Simulated scan of single mutants.
Amino acid sequence: MSPRAALARIRLNPHSRAVQRDLRDANDMHRSLMRLVPDHLGTSPRQTAGLLYRLDETDTTSTLLVQAATLDPSRLPDDYGHADVKDLTPMFNALKKGLAVRYRIVVNPVKTERLPLEQKGRRGKRIPLTGPDADHWWTSRAAEAGLDLHTVLPTPIAAIRHPPKGAPSIRHHLVRYDGTATVTDPDALTHAVLTGIGRAKSYGAGLISLAPEATP
């Protein structure tokens, strides 16, 4: 049985107050997008719904890609933006070993600080990775996800901020990667598409887009 997922492409209305609010605060964006999935999903609703999203921006437009098992864009404010929804089943069915693809993903490349032995049992800080270290992080995660990367084009993007109540604002360092690859493990890649890659999935990281690479 093919996995179940839908993808909404929402062209945001820059004049919408709800959009302006969500672009300022990742917590608000997360809350708005959780309205697209069913209610009462238990203690981990985002994970249960399979909700992932990515913000793609150009000089003139901002587009949200939102993925989940089921999506209902009518639950967003009327002036939020225009949404097109498609079933991802054909894409999953097309994933075969050796398939050449183009990809895009925003990730939060980090490593965990190694603590001295006397602090065994405690978790170190998460340290953002940049430059070649971030590229190596993505190449390694892509291999685990069933992709052999051919080209890797990194684009640093603005850090996502979300201010928890009564605490300093938290920043997530993000990098967008575009490039080409070959599918090496369709099952691992399907799992990665459905569950996302890396951390900060609630704040716009982890959603990978795939398309067959055009042949000359």
Rank of each mutant, 00 (worst) to 15 (best):
R54M: 13
H150W: 11
P132W: 10
L147W: 05
D39F: 11
K96Y: 00
K111R: 15
R24Y: 09
N27R: 15
M1W: 08
E57A: 13
R4I: 09
V110A: 06
L210E: 08
L12R: 10
R24L: 15
R199A: 09
L71T: 04
A211T: 14
G131K: 04
S44Y: 02
H172F: 05
L153G: 00
L36H: 14
T182Y: 13
H191W: 12
R21H: 15
A18N: 08
I127T: 07
P73C: 05
F92K: 07
H150P: 03
T58Q: 10
T60M: 00
L115N: 01
A200Y: 00
P14H: 12
D187R: 12
K111L: 12
P132M: 04
T130G: 11
D79C: 08
S169I: 13
V183H: 02
M1V: 05
A167P: 00
V37T: 13
D56N: 08
G131A: 03
T89N: 09
Q119A: 09
T63W: 07
L88D: 09
T155L: 06
D178S: 06
R176P: 00
T63D: 15
T61A: 08
L52Y: 09
Q20S: 08
H136N: 06
T151L: 09
L129R: 05
A49V: 03
L115C: 05
